[in-house]
Design a protein around this nucleic acid. Structure first.
Lengths: 249, 249
DNA sequence: ACCTCGGATTAACCTGTGTAATAGCGCCGC
DNA sequence: GCGGCGCTATTACACAGGTTAATCCGAGGT
């Protein structure tokens, strides 16, 4: 085992934790994944990791930082469709979809590791269970998309922002990256606006309300959820869509 | 080969066409799928095929009719997250996600065939390429979710309705179920409202505008797109997210 | 022929959110 | 130490779309 693979196994810990929250991943599967890893890359906040229309030949897994998937419309409007945290693949789907139908950008300084598609194909040929786990990850993306859709269609701006805060906290804490109802949220209000589909002005209004209401505090860095139960109630948040149940898949 | 399997291969034609628009599916793969099929079921409009919280032991593929995925919020509001047409799996993800995080309902009279999950597991163990194709189908659901998200966040109600019409036509015609810019759309305005996240009253207003503007006609049955190019422009519709490119996956 | 009922339509009114414009503030480079 | 710049904050005003409620319409059932 080369030191490079050891390093990859190290960097993949959040990823393995994510998987272990839903199923058990065996040591051989871990090793096979670590061996399939290729480069380690670093991005600054605002940089794009992949751009719509490209045909990546490898998929990228976040090892630190916040990233997002987004689309920019002809008229310049922008909409995020997902936020990705350490342990998340940002474009695993490109492995089969081939052409990117959206872009991926860094919301904060970010590091990732890459997995060449041909190595992923090999994995799917040798490890059916691991294949199902990778598939599962893309299904989790899908269930999160649906949750966002419900919010966009039927929740108010305030509820959507509250929901997003609940989601990010639930996901971070599920991999041991947050506790005590506080976490670092290094994104701008503009990014938040693009995530929940409102204007920056209105994001600001909503944040004032959430602060005044005693739900949260947030200075742009550390977000503190002051009243989790009320925030959850406000957002009608239910973590079922995160499928945090460890069982054979 | 039993007559039941022959019948299944017959019913699976729209499904095979869908796959063949993105890749080539071999005769053995077709047979394996047909053999994995189990029951044929019929539903009336308004009936539920699966309900949120259930743990299906089989996945369902639509052979005729319109179905939808949806969630109902505690306060009674409803939001569709997808519309499914013949050839679509409605809950293939339940195979790995286990617990349904949403419900599936029939928008019109519908027939489906079922695939027991244990047979799908066998398929993933024996046919890596077929596995990737099934995976691909769930990725297409994901890319459509993202497209809807962008619409919900950044398009007006009129544009979203226009977009949905474009999408349904593009998907139907891609499997040979529509041509000449017309197709049967047997859903209520209330369902359309729940799909695009607006009120029924406003759906009605928007439809008037689209009719007055010479974009479409629709009497509740046959939808006729009178000016495809203008409808596409209005909706900023781009079929990239449907990934209608035949290539090895 | 009449009744019923789910859907479509229309109108009056209200509100959440967008737009535009401006000011404040802290950080970084020179 | 100064200027610029990206981000947050705030106000005034406009309008898309929600709510409520009434009416209309057509298809099936009796």
């Amino acid at each position: 085992m080369t030191s490079q693979i050891v390093e990859a196994e190290e960097l993949l810990q959040p990823f393995f934790r994510k998987l272990n929250r839903r199923d058990r991943i065996g040591p051989e599967e871990q090793r096979a994944l670590a061996e399939a890893a290729e480069d380690r890359l670093v991005y600054a906040a605002g940089e794009d990791l992949v751009v719509e229309g490209e045909r990546p030949t490898r998929s990228m897994l976040v090892t630190s930082g916040f990233t997002c998937r987004y689309r920019t419309l002809p008229d310049g409007q922008r909409q995020l469709t997902a936020i990705h945290l350490p342990g998340d693949f940002v474009d695993l789907h490109s492995f089969l979809l081939k052409e990117m139908d959206h872009s991926v950008g860094a919301l904060s300084p970010t590091t990732i590791i890459t997995f060449p598609h041909e190595r992923l194909v090999k994995l799917t040929e040798r490890f059916p269970h691991l294949t199902r786990l990778l598939w599962l990850l893309t299904l989790l993306d899908g269930s999160t998309h649906r949750e966002w859709l419900v919010g966009m269609g039927r929740l108010s701006a305030q509820e959507r922002v509250a929901h997003l805060f609940c989601e990010v906290y639930a996901r971070l804490s599920s991999i041991g990256f947050a506790s005590d109802y506080r976490f670092n949220l290094p994104i701008t209000q503009a990014a938040l606006a693009d995530a929940v589909g409102i204007s920056t002005v209105h994001v600001n209004r909503v944040l004032q309300e959430l602060r005044m209401g005693g739900y949260i505090s947030w200075d742009g860095g550390q977000l503190v959820i002051q009243d989790w139960d009320r925030l959850v109630a406000l957002a009608q948040f239910n973590d079922r869509y995160l499928h945090l149940v460890q069982e054979p898949r």
